[in-house]
Design a protein around this nucleic acid. Structure first.
Lengths: 221, 221
DNA sequence: TATTATTTGTGTATATTCGACACTATATTA
DNA sequence: TAATATAGTGTCGAATATACACAAATAATA
């Protein structure tokens, strides 16, 4: 079956940058390509858009198919349309990014992806296509949004300590933050509430667990 | 001649929001559609992407073809991909916006556009397709960027007074600004320099004309 | 040529925000 | 019960942002 048009049409894909913070380090999710082109090269998850879905739905579907991740918050990053960015045919890609908690995510690569894994941002492999460029833009955008929005809260699991949260901000900013100032600031935003529960994983004073008052909101300051 | 693919492909267009400030009012450029669908309805300039150009080049080309505007600074806004946003076929649109000085721009509509005109943002007609939604997002983005970048300087002609510039900021913010604070702020950015020339259009003290030190830069604070 | 009208251009004082900084509290483990 | 490790808390000075009023310069007019 072929699909014919009076004028030439590009193929359209989505690519998704999945950020997380593990052990105080910013990481992204990559898949190893199972097919040509760039077979066996690490790449961003993503794939071709279908005619009955919009780009955001496509990104959600591909992300679940290739990595098992679902129900994530997606934000459109940019559309990449350089003429020869794909050796097969003219392909434009609508890139999205998402932030996810670092909790046990069972990665389930499917047929398009031989393997899925988290990579430290400081230790990345060469990426297929122009995915290096896409990732660079995503990283800049993430850094920027961390400073002028509440997007960073999307990294958090259901319950977390203020130290957990500070670690996330330190990982994305790549610098240490003052504990008292950080707590003053984040609490002044009035987005967190105490759960009443406490948590400790060592010989120390346990920390109050907090949760988001409104888990799905992202606000601009 | 037809173009055939193994899988269905969407058509790809660009749409461009052109902002300017005239007499202290924020305006945008619209064209009246010369063809179906939405014949005789006002719409954003734009059109189908060719296979040998990227989306930004397409936007620049369409803008010049439909309005005569060229050499503008374009910024990608968002990609709109709702399934039925165009009645003809599946079309996704990569939207760009640009800011241009209000100086005499000779609008030269071509065959795709019957007419091109500036519209006050407070007095807009109904727009074709989902262009109303696109414009709404562009307006929000412009307002936001005016506050955290130097994008506003793109509205200015080669030479301008500080009062001209303040008018631009007041038009986009939709509120009056304090003259002394505005001047202190804009001069502290170290982006302007005096031309030495003065300008007056009435029975009053003439104002110093300034120019941009670096006309093409857009900085984030 | 003096007066009027109109816009330009300038400084200070106050309020608010940001940033630096150190010790006590509380639990676990040895 | 002593040692260890992280949690949790407040103040002061610096920097920044905000509010606010009048003299200067020119063109038009009387």
């Amino acid at each position: 079956m072929t699909y014919c048009y009076e004028y030439p049409h590009p193929a359209v894909t989505t690519d998704i940058i999945v950020f997380t913070v593990q052990k105080g380090r910013l990481k992204i999710l990559l898949i190893k390509r199972a097919r040509e082109p760039f077979k066996d090269t690490w790449a961003l998850p993503g794939g071709f858009m279908k005619m009955d879905e919009d780009a955001c739905d496509c990104a959600l579907r591909e992300l679940e198919e290739e990595t098992g991740l679902k129900d994530v918050y997606l934000e459109q990053l940019y559309t990449f349309s350089t003429v020869n960015r794909d050796p097969r045919e003219r392909v434009i890609s609508i890139a999205y990014f998402t932030l996810t908690p670092s909790e046990a995510i069972t990665l389930k690569p499917d047929t398009d992806a031989a393997e899925a894994a988290w990579f430290d941002m400081q230790d990345l492999p060469n990426l297929a296509f122009d995915h290096g460029e896409i990732l660079e833009m995503a990283t800049e955008r993430l850094s920027a949004k961390m400073t002028y929005s509440t997007i960073g809260l999307q990294f958090m699991p259901a319950k977390f300590t203020l130290s957990n949260l500070q670690n996330v901000y330190e990982a994305t900013a790549n610098k240490p933050l003052d504990k008292r100032n950080f707590r003053k600031w984040i609490l002044s935003l009035d987005l967190l509430e105490e759960t009443g529960e406490k948590f400790s994983d060592g010989p120390q004073r346990p920390a109050m667990l907090y949760r988001l008052k409104d888990p799905n909101s992202v606000d601009i300051f």
